[in-house]
Design a protein around this nucleic acid. Structure first.
Lengths: 229, 229
DNA sequence: AAACTATTTATTGTCGACAATCAGCAATTG
DNA sequence: CAATTGCTGATTGTCGACAATAAATAGTTT
């Protein structure tokens, strides 16, 4: 009998190759800000840190370059990408289109079980809002949108979306955290959820797109107030 | 004085690293079908072919894995990806959303010069249709859509779109070339162009999305008739 | 003293070699 | 005779070493 639904830890470790492991590790380093945007990455240092040789590290960096988290200059090294406001704007343009699709598909396909999970997150976000816990809210917000795209049931859509939002995450790290308008954000989430629960695909799509647009506007506002200072 | 707009061939060769060169080379091999879908890729063979060692080849393959053109199994090698009809369907779902955005932005931003270039391609496609030259039409069609997304003026959008369509290309290689309905396809192109020339973003977006949907439908039809045989 | 040049040093790019692992075949055993 | 077990050849995974390049430093000249 074949082991059907048993994701053993052993199997995961054995299936994932070392460069792949190193890649997610470096990705974490970048996303958590330990490797700052614009910074140059030293291959030898990373290799030492992970206890490998430079080969796997180079392979991992090549993968990260393809996912646009780093850029590489010949004979000079690879650098953590920095995304400008203009680039973030471009990303948002695409994201809005994808978010609309996500809302649409969610309304068609999301199971009641999944809707419950989403509602649970929303409640947690309300609690975080009440205590003004920005960090928790930010993390929950990320998880919420990740679940949304997952539950939309289109693997390629998930891929594209994740790639895009990683770039956005890199931008947010530069300081401006969503313009601070996070109580508003959650009311928008609830409106989207209502449309999904009502199985109104068109409305859900429209609302989720508007939510992304609002988020973009908050970013602009924060960026503007920042450059003014 | 700095060389402003002179993309010397020398500079390109020197700026692009060897693994990057190898990567596009392998990509061509895959996209032109010399490396068939599902086939296993031998690192040593490729290294010999390009006159390098296995290191750069491995890095290139890691990049291609990130762009989903190959998949990698630990200790077994990397394989050219094969995309099923279901996956192609997923891709089309996303592509439709992006095409709508492309049409919208094109109507807003395309310069008269660019519109001329596009029209020129359309004429060529008409000529290819008249002579029933499927291959030429296919190539022109690819160029046309590539130019569309380029002229939309959003680098991230271009990236996402290209990534998606590469996957689709991989699927088309498996035999079914767009269901043969290519005279229809070009009339759709012309309708889109008319909307863009009229600077009607909403209509251009809607029409380009419908064009993608029609293309998807043609794929389904071809796939159905194929499995029936 | 400033500017240009030579040298040194650190880091990347590439390679060949060795170890680990897997697919296929042969031999053995019940 | 079927099935399991143990080889064998080939291929991948990883490493350390060397060459090539770029940044930093020191030295020289005007």
């Amino acid at each position: 009998m074949a082991p059907t639904a048993a994701p053993t830890k052993l199997q995961l470790v054995q299936s994932n190759s070392l460069p792949a492991l190193v890649q997610v590790e470096i990705e974490q380093l970048i996303l958590c800000g330990e490797l700052a945007a614009g910074e140059r990455i030293n291959e030898s240092d990373l290799a030492m840190r992970f206890g490998t040789s430079r080969g796997p590290v180079r392979e991992a960096l090549r993968g990260l370059e393809e996912s646009r988290l780093v850029r590489s200059e010949k004979n000079r090294g690879v650098f953590v990408r920095e995304v400008s406001v203009a680039e973030a704007d471009e990303i948002y343009d695409v994201r809005e289109a994808l978010d609309q699709l996500i809302g649409q598909r969610l309304a068609e396909r999301a199971t009641p079980q999944q809707l419950c999970e989403l509602d649970a997150i929303l409640e947690e976000m309300d609690r975080a809002t009440a205590v003004q816990d920005v960090n928790s809210y930010h993390a929950l917000n990320l998880r919420f949108h990740d679940m949304l795209v997952d539950f939309a049931g289109n693997a390629r859509l998930t891929e594209s979306y994740r790639l895009l939002t990683k770039g956005l995450l890199l931008f947010r790290l530069r300081g401006l955290q969503d313009g601070g308008g996070f109580p508003v954000s959650n009311t928008e989430h609830k409106a989207v959820m209502a449309a999904i629960a009502a199985r109104d695909g068109a409305r859900a799509g429209r609302l989720l797109r508007q939510h992304a647009a609002a988020s973009r506007a908050r970013m602009h506002k924060a960026a503007a107030s920042r450059t003014r200072k």
